Simulated scan of single mutants.
Amino acid sequence: MLDWDDLRIFLAVARSGSFVASGRALGLNHTTLARRLTALESSIGTRLFDRSPRGVQPTKAGLDLIEHAERIEDEVLAAGRRIEGQDGAVSGVVRLSTPEAFGTYFIAPRAHLLNAAHPQIELELAPESRTVNLSKREADIAISLHRPDQGRLQAARLVDYRIGLYASEDLLARVGPIETLAALRSQPFISYIEEMIDLPELRNLDRSLAKRCVFRSSSVAAQMEAVASGLGFGLLHCFAVGPHMRLVRVLPDAVEVVRSYWMVLHADLARVPRIRAVADFVAERVRAEAGSF
């Protein structure tokens, strides 16, 4: 008889290819995890992984088991979603996944307002530039840069936002005013590490503008600090730029990218009170401050 907890461990190792990484994700010591998998293999009389110094790879039997284990995982998660929150209490943990700029510069500074309204909710904010799988419960609510095209998901456009070109006051004092796109081409630029971006909407934003990149980061916050330091020009989220940063919008009529934020929830969780409360809070704050975007 296969045990779901053993299958959960098996899936984590199969997906990460590493005992250390999957142990960290599951909160287990990697030696304990390896021992559990060895016991699973012994109980079913089949080797599930080939082990090497580079990590682990599923065997043919392991690949076959992945298909069954993922179907079981889907059913377990679906059952949890269906019955979760039926007591109506507005309390508990809610994980909100967002693009980095939205989470860092909009949600985090306003989290105290959510706490004041719902003190029994524990908000877990995950601001990162990657796509999450709501069906696998990687998050309860996701703010996405596009409308999802599959899955039992509810999606609504939250707001359109602008990305503009910025430079520090100090940098502009050194190089002089930038009045044309041609003049911009010779200036130092700050951008993303493109191969580390999981969201296609963030790629190639500056290809037509920049000729010389002097700093790259996968972090929006790091890019903003580098621009503020006077290192170079950068494309930044307009709503995230505060007056204390002493940043100047450059060529606003010529350089502007408009994107949209979408709020996405799994249909089975949309009426869970604590999740509904967080979703409503985000929507209400965005509506109240729509002009800043």
Rank of each mutant, 00 (worst) to 15 (best):
E289M: 14
M1F: 09
E179F: 01
R82V: 09
E256I: 10
T98L: 02
Q154A: 06
A222F: 00
R8I: 06
K211A: 12
V248H: 09
E70T: 15
S219Y: 02
V90S: 05
A89I: 10
V250M: 04
P53A: 10
P273C: 10
A222Q: 14
E201N: 07
A283E: 13
S186R: 13
A173V: 05
Q223A: 04
H146F: 08
A78N: 13
A101Y: 00
R81K: 13
L165W: 03
D5K: 13
R152W: 08
Y105D: 12
I9R: 12
A78M: 10
A288C: 01
R246Y: 02
A12I: 03
V175L: 00
I107N: 13
N204W: 06
R259A: 06
S208G: 05
A221K: 14
L28A: 05
L251R: 09
G45S: 09
Q187L: 09
E75I: 05
N133F: 03
R174D: 04
P127R: 14
T31R: 14
D64G: 13
V159I: 14
R51F: 00
R212D: 11
M1D: 12
H244C: 07
A111D: 00
H146P: 02
S229C: 12
A228F: 01
V255K: 04
A89E: 14
S292Q: 09
R8T: 10
R82I: 08
R216S: 13
W4F: 15
P58V: 07
D87F: 05
S52M: 03
R130Q: 13
A270D: 12
R54V: 11
L145F: 14
N204L: 12
D87P: 13
D140C: 08
T131S: 08
F239I: 04
I44H: 05
I72K: 13
P127K: 13
L247P: 09
E138M: 02
L231F: 01
S219H: 03
L231S: 02
G23N: 02
L33R: 05
D280T: 13
R259N: 11
R152P: 15
A254H: 08
D198E: 15
L96Q: 09
R110F: 07
L199I: 14
